[in-house]
């Protein structure tokens, strides 16, 4: 997943100083190679670049005769989105939900990685790790189905009955049916689903730290806690910052599934995000041009954020993803 510094670096293989004849020779030599590449290029053009062209529908009136719209209407649909009463709270929800998820998932994964690396019993370590990956492999449909049962308002449902027994609450919490509980709940579920999987990269980074650093720290009398603060954390910090910065780049992707399945009329003011909005207005209500405008807005802001984040990482960390 993450070849941190040079996975996408395109600095290798730059061809300079070739004469035309050499290029022709090269093409001839790579004839089979290039022929094999053609179907893939065609595939990408059809399934990726044509929809990009199609997003111009945002500037056009929808028509049944041409797939990507007819008459040009300029910025009309963008204006109506920005001026609509929905714009404010949808942007707020999108940014808040993905920021909460990013911050807490990152912290949880780092903590989990540090603690699991301290375990001495290899079998125990392996079992905990394996179990921790489990939630990553299931769909949000399943997570939502589980959440509805386990977080149910019923005072005999697992979480509420536990909290009641511990006298932490007086009456059952309506996790699913109250707008105020949506953000904490969905953040909790995001952390639950991602903690194991996200820790893989941090565990690898910790394992690659030179053991001698710890040994000399022990000789100097550093405690376990001091070792974590002064050796482990600083060494994996570049990895953390890089992944975090790119998380910021994806801030408008709050995720479609979790919001859609956990959404209901009671919590809609806290749970509607850009993706669910496009689905509802753009497709279900067939406001195609409007939906395309919202989608294009999201894509453009997304790529600007990614380029900026990459620039920041390159400048300050001397690493980036492209």
């Amino acid at each position: 997943m993450l070849k941190l510094s040079n996975m996408f670096s395109m600095k290798q293989g730059v061809t300079t100083g070739y004469s035309q004849i050499a290029i022709v020779k090269k093409i001839k030599r790579q004839k089979v190679h290039l022929l094999l590449l053609l179907p893939f290029i065609a595939f990408i053009i059809i399934f990726k670049y044509i929809p990009m062209y199609g997003s111009l529908l945002a500037f056009r009136e929808f028509s049944y005769r041409t797939p990507f719209g007819g008459d040009w209407v300029g910025l009309q649909y963008f204006k109506s989105f920005f001026n609509s009463p929905d714009f404010g709270y949808i942007m707020r929800n999108t940014v808040v939900i993905s920021s909460l998820s990013l911050v807490f998932s990152t912290l949880a994964a780092i903590l989990f990685a540090i603690l699991i690396c301290e375990v001495r019993n290899a079998a125990y370590k392996k079992i905990i790790q394996t179990v921790s990956y489990l939630p990553h492999f299931i769909s949000w449909v399943v997570v939502a189905g589980m959440a509805m049962t386990i977080l149910s308002i019923d005072e005999l449902a697992p979480v509420n009955s536990l909290l009641l027994h511990l006298h932490l609450i007086d009456k059952p919490i309506n996790f699913l049916g109250e707008a105020d509980h949506f953000w904490p709940m969905v953040t909790g579920l995001n952390v639950w689903k991602n903690i194991g999987w996200n820790s893989i990269i941090y565990i690898a980074a910790i394992m690659s730290i030179d053991k001698q650093m710890y040994e000399s720290a022990v000789i100097d009398g550093a405690s376990r806690y001091k070792q974590i603060i002064h050796i482990t954390l600083p060494t994996i910090m570049p990895t953390i910052i890089l992944l975090f910065t790119f998380g910021v780049g994806y801030i408008l992707n709050a995720g479609l599934d979790q919001q859609l399945f956990l959404q209901n009329p009671m919590n809609i003011r806290s749970s509607e995000v850009l993706d669910t909005y496009v689905l509802k207005y753009g497709l279900q209500q067939a406001a195609y041009s409007y939906g395309a405008a919202v989608g294009l807005f999201k894509s453009v802001v997304g790529i600007v954020l990614i380029v900026v984040c990459n620039y920041v990482c390159r400048k300050f960390l001397k690493m980036g993803i492209f």
Binding site: K48, L57, F68, G282, L283, Y288, L296, I303
Partner: peptide, 15 residues
Amino acid sequence: FTMYFSGGLIPEFML
């Protein structure tokens, strides 16, 4: 480039 920029849901549906 296609990893970071997409046409979005509606154009894909049309396609």
